[in-house]
Amino acid sequence: MSETKKLYYEDVYQKEFTATVQECRELKDGYGIILDQTAFYPEGGGQPCDFGTLNDIPVTDVQEEGEVIVHHTEKAIEVGQEIKGKIDWERRFDLMQQHSGEHIVSGLIHEAYGYNNVGFHMGSDVITVDLSGVLTEKQLQEIEEETNRKIWENTAVEVFYPSEEELETLSYRSKKELTGQVRLVRFPGSDLCACCGTHVTHTGEIGAVKILTVENFREGVRVTMICGKRVLDYLNMVNDQNHQISVKLSAKTEETAAAVERLQDENFRLKGKLMHMVDELSETEAQRYEDAGSVLAFHEGLEADQVRKMADAIMQKCSGCCAVFSRNEDGSYKYAMGELNGDLRQFTKDMNAALNGRGGGKPFFVQGSVKATEEEIRQFFRQ
């Protein structure tokens, strides 16, 4: 069987094509269609494959196997039949933008710091790039600014196949040692890299690049970024979120951060007041139940640590076991229960079994939650 002609290398913007079916293989999950030529890019080099259709039959995967390219479909197509192929152009162009933007970022980092791109993945939402050295957020911000300047220069991207002699004189990025004919992609002033993927022909088509996060990863860092239309989608999402926040806080969109800071300060002060009130309530309840024997108390609106604090305060004063319950929003109850010098392990086990609960702790003090009503809890404690 002859080699599949790769139309995506001849014209990366070709969206439709005709071809002849050379082979139709039966696979475990469908069929593998081999054509004499194709515009479908197969998965490789960190870039996902193209999707689309062959005679309106969806192509679900594309893989390169030796000299041929296999298109995965759910239906068979007769050998010798002429087909019309259509690639999902929106997806292809998105991947071209992502791959091209990554080239410029990786090339500028390599030039400025000498770090290599040792891992690259294009997901459906973001790109991740693993670098062999550590970079700060400030350094990456500078790289982002320089990347976008290079994009807006709108220079032509060059793809070429140098001779062996020419290759020896060129300084280019590559993740592995290469033999035979090497495909180089040059982004003028930014990057020269051995790459088999698809790219835009002019940097301006990338639109923009936004670096989202950086985190330590192995011996270097992992950078998360987006390019092209994904940047616009991201900005629209952030703008929509900020607008919703501004409405809820009655603040201008450019002043939401300051409004949130004021809200946090107010929340901190209110929490302090609430803690003081709970401390006073716990002390009052402890005095109320002094020498009262065993105590079962219900209080609304307490957090888990406040339930614990109240149970501990009462436990110190009453002469028996103290159990404090507070209802959660879903109708269940959180609890804390204690008895000085007591052993509540079996009682807690029985209670959790009877009231659909979970929890535990020390023999004399336990915490947890139960999925039961107040009446069911009271009924259990009457036994």
Results as ranks from 00 to 15, higher is better:
residue 1 M to K: 10
residue 2 S to R: 14
residue 5 K to D: 11
residue 11 D to L: 04
residue 12 V to M: 02
residue 12 V to C: 11
residue 14 Q to I: 08
residue 14 Q to P: 06
residue 29 D to M: 06
residue 30 G to I: 07
residue 32 G to E: 06
residue 32 G to N: 06
residue 37 Q to H: 09
residue 40 F to V: 03
residue 45 G to P: 05
residue 48 P to R: 08
residue 49 C to I: 00
residue 53 T to K: 10
residue 60 T to A: 06
residue 60 T to M: 08
residue 62 V to Y: 01
residue 70 V to H: 02
residue 72 H to Q: 13
residue 76 A to C: 04
residue 76 A to R: 07
residue 83 I to G: 01
residue 85 G to C: 08
residue 87 I to D: 05
residue 90 E to Y: 03
residue 90 E to S: 13
residue 97 Q to T: 09
residue 97 Q to L: 02
residue 97 Q to D: 02
residue 99 H to P: 12
residue 102 E to P: 01
residue 104 I to W: 01
residue 106 S to T: 14
residue 116 N to T: 05
residue 117 N to V: 00
residue 119 G to H: 05
residue 120 F to I: 00
residue 127 I to K: 06
residue 130 D to W: 05
residue 137 E to W: 09
residue 137 E to Y: 05
residue 141 Q to F: 11
residue 141 Q to P: 00
residue 142 E to A: 14
residue 143 I to T: 08
residue 148 N to M: 05
residue 151 I to W: 01
residue 152 W to R: 15
residue 155 T to Q: 15
residue 156 A to P: 12
residue 158 E to M: 09
residue 160 F to V: 08
residue 163 S to D: 11
residue 175 K to L: 06
residue 175 K to M: 06
residue 179 T to D: 12
residue 183 R to V: 03
residue 184 L to E: 06
residue 185 V to N: 02
residue 188 P to V: 06
residue 191 D to P: 01
residue 192 L to D: 02
residue 193 C to I: 13
residue 194 A to R: 03
residue 195 C to Q: 08
residue 195 C to P: 01
residue 197 G to C: 10
residue 201 T to E: 15
residue 203 T to G: 04
residue 207 G to Q: 07
residue 207 G to K: 10
residue 212 L to M: 13
residue 215 E to C: 02
residue 218 R to C: 00
residue 220 G to L: 00
residue 234 Y to Q: 12
residue 243 H to K: 14
residue 246 S to W: 03
residue 259 A to H: 09
residue 259 A to R: 10
residue 265 D to M: 13
residue 271 K to D: 12
residue 274 L to S: 07
residue 276 H to I: 11
residue 279 D to Q: 14
residue 280 E to Y: 09
residue 280 E to T: 14
residue 281 L to F: 09
residue 286 A to I: 05
residue 286 A to G: 08
residue 290 E to S: 11
residue 290 E to L: 11
residue 297 A to G: 06
residue 305 D to E: 14
residue 310 M to R: 09
residue 315 M to Y: 00
residue 317 K to Q: 15
residue 319 S to P: 09
residue 322 C to K: 02
residue 323 A to P: 01
residue 329 E to F: 03
residue 330 D to Q: 05
residue 331 G to E: 11
residue 333 Y to H: 13
residue 335 Y to D: 02
residue 337 M to P: 02
residue 338 G to F: 04
residue 338 G to S: 04
residue 339 E to T: 07
residue 347 F to C: 10
residue 349 K to G: 12
residue 350 D to H: 11
residue 354 A to W: 04
residue 356 N to F: 08
residue 358 R to S: 12
residue 367 Q to T: 14
residue 369 S to M: 11
residue 371 K to C: 13
residue 373 T to M: 05
residue 373 T to R: 07
residue 374 E to L: 04
residue 375 E to S: 12
residue 376 E to M: 07
residue 383 Q to S: 13
residue 383 Q to R: 13
